[in-house]
Amino acid sequence: MEHYNMNLTLKVWRQQNAQVQGSFETYQVKDISSEMSFLEMFDVLNEQLIHEGKEPITFDHDCREGICGACSMHINGKAHGPWSGTTTCQLHMRAFKDGDTIVVEPWRAGAFPVIKDLMVDRTAFDRIIQAGGYISVNTGNAQDANNLPIAKDKADESFAAATCIGCGACVASCKNSSAMLFLSAKVAHLALLPQGEAERKTRVVNMVDQMDKEGFGSCTNTGACEAECPKEISIMNIRRLNSEYIKAGLSGSVAK
């Protein structure tokens, strides 16, 4: 792999806090190595801003290895940028070339208000989980783990849904700001397992109800979420969610 350096123009959303209006600021960065990650490029820019006596750009990040779901930049019109199946922190500067202009915005969704600059409030996701995204089993209740055989394909499918990192890119890339992909991944993870059976109906009803309360939009099947999900969570989960929801409704489960 050949490495190269590049000079770039960045247009970044700056917003002091939730109460005030934000706007784009333009910055130049020089000698960015193609080996850097996108966030390392932001580190360089922030160091530069600090030395100029300005406030650095605030953004969420932690693991920097694509698993915690903290990073969340909308880059050139795409959630997490140009590479598919990739979080912002795993995007590398090889994706860009010398002279490029890169536009960076926070997630845009009513249910994700901006905290500062590129950082948004995603606690609505926690509240959706609180509404039923769990199996009610207190510590100490469990039987021997192998007493409950689970077919490998079921376990694998459940695992695939459970790999959602809760980043919110699905919401950010949806024109309706729907949280259906996130929600459906959790419903599928638990509905596919025998352990999840007891609460199967109430879970889906309560979680959907909470999603509506949080102000996420409805799903019109555009598929944008699946296309930009960094963990490639399948849109089939939404289909499963819908059928779980209908089944629950037929059996008379209502949100509590």
Partner: peptide
């Protein structure tokens, strides 16, 4: 045991 009961999808 506890994790499996919670629905942790370990490899099978």
């Amino acid at each position: 045991d506890q994790c499996v009961a919670q629905g942790v999808p370990f490899a099978r």
